[in-house]
């Protein structure tokens, strides 16, 4: 069975849910959660690009010949996603700190309907 379409569509759906969260509200926490969902979708998609039919987990647990085709999936996207997850944690931490700063200044987490912004937009 080919897993590529199923996982790819799930990844795109996660990305789409995140995008909807970004567009449909003005709550800062909602935006941070939405960006986290979009990141997850992108990570799933990146890992999927390393998949190949019958590929093993990229950990050497048995002897294999280096002259024939590689028995493993492509390990490069997995390694990149490892980095991506850690960087995502860092950006989320910083974004949450900025959300606290916004709540201190305005008393809530709603964003974008301030009168001074409306003046700038007009």
């Amino acid at each position: 069975m080919n897993v590529v379409p199923i996982v790819a569509i799930s990844a795109l759906l996660l990305f789409g849910i995140g995008l909807y969260g970004l567009w449909s509200g003005r709550n800062v926490l909602r935006w941070i959660l939405a960006v986290g969902l979009m990141e997850t979708g992108i990570n799933v998609f990146l890992v999927l690009t390393g998949w190949r039919p019958g590929g093993a987990v990229p950990i050497i647990t048995g002897a294999f010949s280096t002259r024939g085709p590689s028995p493993f999936i492509d390990p490069v996207p997995s390694a990149l996603v490892l980095t991506s997850i850690v960087i995502g944690l860092g950006t989320t931490t910083l974004a949450l700190a900025l959300a606290v700063l916004h709540a201190r200044a305005h008393g809530d987490l709603e964003c974008g309907d301030d009168p001074e912004n409306a003046e700038v937009l007009e």
Binding site: G50, I60, G62, F64, S65, T66, S70, F72, V76
Partner: peptide, 19 residues
């Protein structure tokens, strides 16, 4: 990715790699 898996990025690896 296959070169990483075979461990022969900088030079040829042995014919068989395993535990």
């Amino acid at each position: 990715g296959d070169a990483f898996s075979r461990r022969d990025v900088r030079g040829p690896a042995p014919d068989q790699v395993g535990p």
